[in-house]
Amino acid sequence: MKAWILRSFRKGIITSKFPGGRNENASPWSTPPVYRKGDQDPYCPVGAISQGKADANRCISCGLCYPNYEPSMDIHGSVSSVSVPALKKSIRIYQIDVGSCGACNLEIGALANPQYDMARLGISFTNTPRHADALLVSGVLTDNMREPLMRAYEAMAEPRVVFAVGACAISGSLLGKAVSDTLRIDVTVPGCPPDPFTIMDAVQKARGVK
């Protein structure tokens, strides 16, 4: 026990000041790319670039548009069509993987890391959709996950918010079908995978905390 206490003192305070202050860090290419140079739109494998702009919801963070485009380092790219004040004090998240490569799952899980410490904002994970306020969906929607997804959604009580986390869930990216084909999405969280700060920012937006 003594070793753990000493270690904690040595590490000091490591929890982010975000959202009260700025995010200390971001995964560059997980943030939406912005135009830097070049006369023509560069090649983009998912056709996300048009007329000097990259569509964050389609971008798969591949970096192929470099050096014409560069990461914006902006973690505020999520869009929420809802604001649910009832969730301001506490929001419980159920994560469902409907066909992901694993990276989005881990970035959602990263919110529990000491650097993000979601608990200080009243955010927590739950192991059952019955207790969840928010459904965070990651991956392209496979045929076999359609029913589990709908059953999880139907098990949730109102008010409930559905997040599409990452390019696969939002647009289907290169790999399959978007979740929005089956379920109404309230919040889109762009990135492949989205940076944990982007996910945290999205959760705050849906609660109307920003």
């Binding site: 798969i60 970096g63 650097q115």
Partner: peptide
């Protein structure tokens, strides 16, 4: 406590990877 300390280290590593390689999971 060990769990949190390991998560902390992994997060530090992912941030170091992101700043060196531009992406926490080496995409692209």
């Amino acid at each position: 406590i060990a769990h949190m300390n390991i998560l902390l280290l992994r997060e530090e590593l992912l941030r170091a990877i992101a700043s060196a390689f531009g992406h926490r999971y080496f995409f692209g």
